[in-house]
Design a protein around this nucleic acid. Structure first.
Lengths: 155, 155
DNA sequence: TTGCTCCTCACGTCACGTGAGGTGGC
DNA sequence: TTGCTCCTCACGTCACGTGAGGTGGC
């Protein structure tokens, strides 16, 4: 559980980013080395490669690095004391509430096409598409966090 | 239909932004004056005040101004020739497809809580919450575009 | 020695504005 | 004259890195 740790170069090449970027992310607290080697080299867990992938997909959804830091903070918070930027961690029930709300919204949108003009539909399609990609990212992320349960619907 | 046009100062103060910002948005093609006055003053439609509100809420969702330009381009495209940045306008069916997909995803997420740990739930709640706000913005926007139909579910 | 790392200071780019100042018509 | 506008050039800030160079241990 601590033998297959990776140095920065290996992490970077597996994740497909530059060493400099791994260094940068580490400085931000987005990545936390499991420990340091005798020679003061940072040693990362292999799972940090997935973590970088997760970071990149969240970034692609327009989420800022400091939000991502909060979001993925579970482990990092134990290792490092203070990051706090006044963002309260969501309650477990929050997911349920959001899903219920989403459901209502989806139903409202279903009834829209009849009254809406072409341009309005285009705007909605773009925004809903964006939301949909966001949730797809969430599902992929949760699969990684859960270690490979098979939950993601096709398309 | 062309008498109650507004000059930049009036638009700005109604929208709660600076004149400079209205100027800036106009330069980007986000706003297009209905016409110019004799003295070359830009004359905006009163609805441009709502438009600015829409722009601000989309910005708040992390959508870039040039995306917003595309998104709201319906009228603007008739007035000004080329903005094109290679973004194809979404088909009318696209909304339906996204909604169907969203539906499937919401169902998948409903089954998650039993297997997922606290941290995973927190991450999901954040992302789903974000998606939900995005769609709420879409609904508000569509209400404006449609001129006040009553479609938005509470909360 | 070579190749890796660490760390730090600075620079680069892009998005999103904002300031300031000279212009002209009402 | 005053207050509005237009336009333009430049500057400011923030996020997100990237470059370069000196350091030290393997």
């Amino acid at each position: 559980m601590s033998k297959d740790l990776l140095r920065i170069g290996e992490v970077a090449s597996r994740a497909g980013v530059s060493k400099r970027t791994v260094d940068f992310y580490t400085g931000l607290g987005l990545l936390t080395p499991a420990r340091r080697s005798g020679g003061n080299f940072r040693l990362y867990q292999p799972s940090d490669v997935q973590r970088i992938a997760a970071i990149r997909s969240l970034e692609a959804q327009g989420i800022r690095l400091n939000e991502i830091t909060q979001l993925l903070a579970g482990r990092a918070l134990q290792d490092q004391g203070e990051h706090s930027q006044d963002s309260r961690p969501p309650e477990p029930e929050a997911l349920d509430e959001h899903l219920t709300c989403l459901d209502a919204q989806v139903r409202a949108l279903r009834e829209l096409p009849e009254v809406a003009d072409h341009r309005t539909l285009a705007v909605l399609a773009t925004l809903v598409g964006r939301a949909q990609v966001l949730i797809a990212t969430a599902l992929i992320l949760s699969e990684e966090l859960l270690g490979g349960a098979d939950l993601i619907p096709p398309l």
